[in-house]
């Protein structure tokens, strides 16, 4: 039953056994092709396993498009260094801490340091671990390290 598959799936998620997560999400999706939890688990597992090309394929081939797929797609494109496409995809996603962090990383790679720093400043109250490492990097690259 679906419940049993999700129980096993959860065990593999807790163990960070990403190949098995993909295997069991595929089993769930064979029964319930539009299951949002299974779709999301599959894409996350592929990303966590650094299989960004497969994650993009999973997003493209899914009949159901989830709210956060634009973010996942943008992240995969960023990993492939397709930075303009990644920004385009991010524009389709509601802005939140995650999307803003990714936007910063894309802008940094594009050399748009001032825009990057502006967003890090907006994120300052959101308590992202180690964010100062990236914001300092952007300040250094912008020649604004005295800030």
């Amino acid at each position: 039953a679906l419940e049993d598959l999700f129980t096993t799936l959860n065990r593999h998620i807790q163990a960070s056994a990403f190949d098995n997560v993909v295997k069991f999400t595929d089993q769930i999706l064979a029964i319930a092709p539009d299951d949002e939890d299974a779709l999301r688990c599959k894409v996350v597992a592929l990303i966590k396993n650094d299989h960004v090309e497969d994650a993009l394929s999973a997003i493209k081939s899914s009949r159901k498009q989830l709210d956060d797929f634009h973010f996942f797609k943008a992240y995969c494109l960023y990993r492939q260094n397709k930075l303009d496409e990644a920004l385009e995809s991010l524009k389709r996603q509601a802005r939140n801490d995650e999307t803003m962090l990714l936007e910063c990383q894309i802008l940094y790679r594009l050399g748009k340091m001032d825009a990057c720093i502006d967003i890090y400043q907006k994120l300052q109250n959101s308590k992202v671990d180690n964010m100062e490492i990236n914001s300092v990097a952007a300040l250094v690259m912008a020649g604004r390290s005295s800030e």
């Binding site: 419940e3 966590k48 995650e98 992202v128 964010m131």
Partner: peptide, 21 residues
């Protein structure tokens, strides 16, 4: 060049599937 971390990767999380089990 200074070190940059992939903080976006850290933000990507599995959904809570407790209620599906």
């Amino acid at each position: 060049n200074p070190i940059v971390l992939d903080l976006a990767y850290n933000m990507i999380e599995f959904p809570d599937i407790e209620n599906r089990m």
